[in-house]
Amino acid sequence: MSDDLQASAAVGDATNPCSLVHQFFTTDTSFIQETPGDLFDAPDGAAIIHACNCKGAWGAGIAAIFRKNYPAAFEVYVQHCRAFKESPSSHNIYDLVYSRVSRFRSVNLPLGTALIIPPQERDIAIHSRRHWVVCLFASDGYGRHVDSSEKILSSLSAALKHLNEQLILLRMQAQRTGSEHPLSLYSNRFCTGLFHVRWELICDMINSIGLPINVCFPYTASTTGGRRGRLPVRLRSTEGNETGGQ
């Protein structure tokens, strides 16, 4: 984020993404549990969340580990990106760096959406767990072409809301039909690495939407960062009952 943007946030500039995140997403309730551990050791039935680009590439950072651990899910992700490349479509998302004309911005799909990939048999054979993989489309490009952190905040906000909507539908469907659905949500501190977004802003979004996410960090961080592990949180049914997890 530029120095000018940080300075304007200090005086409450309404056009600054930091101000707008705190204005529209701040809540006193925390749905995030941070605990030391390996993200990929999440329990059976968990959904593993990470942020993605829209180009069908998991080539660096934690995305490369996802590609190694979930090759079948990667193929689903690639096909999803390819489908929108071959048949382009767009939608409007709320722009945290809006102009005075409109607070919405038109973006090409799948940017600003979430893809929930069910457990794939080939991936289950690798680590003996039924993990769902969630792709949050937060940046159109990657590497030198990654979106600005301000644009990523807007796209991530839309993607998290879309994820929540889909999770509600999956739980409702499971209640009616007994179908499989994610039992818990796990992630790392997504978007803070190669996408360069401040974690506290992402936390505001997650807590405002009400997504109960277990955030894993390396064991070494528990001694150097002063963070203490807590029991994992689980998704709840639409009636408020716990539906699973470990």
Rank of each mutant, 00 (worst) to 15 (best):
M1I: 14
T15A: 13
P17E: 07
S19A: 14
L20F: 02
F31H: 08
E34P: 05
E34R: 12
A46Q: 06
A47T: 07
C54W: 00
C54T: 07
G61F: 00
A63F: 02
A64N: 07
F66S: 08
K68V: 08
V76H: 06
H80I: 06
F84I: 03
D95R: 03
L96Q: 07
Y98F: 12
V101A: 15
T113W: 01
E121R: 14
I124Q: 09
A125I: 06
H127L: 09
V133W: 09
V133N: 11
Y142R: 12
G143D: 07
R144F: 08
S154R: 01
S157C: 09
L160V: 04
L160A: 01
N164R: 09
I168W: 04
Q175D: 13
T177G: 04
S179I: 09
H181D: 05
H181A: 13
L183M: 12
C191Q: 01
C191T: 11
F195R: 01
V197W: 00
L201D: 02
I202W: 00
C203S: 12
M205P: 00
N207M: 06
V215I: 13
C216Q: 12
A221F: 09
T223N: 13
T224S: 15
T224M: 12
R230L: 10
S237V: 02
T243Q: 13
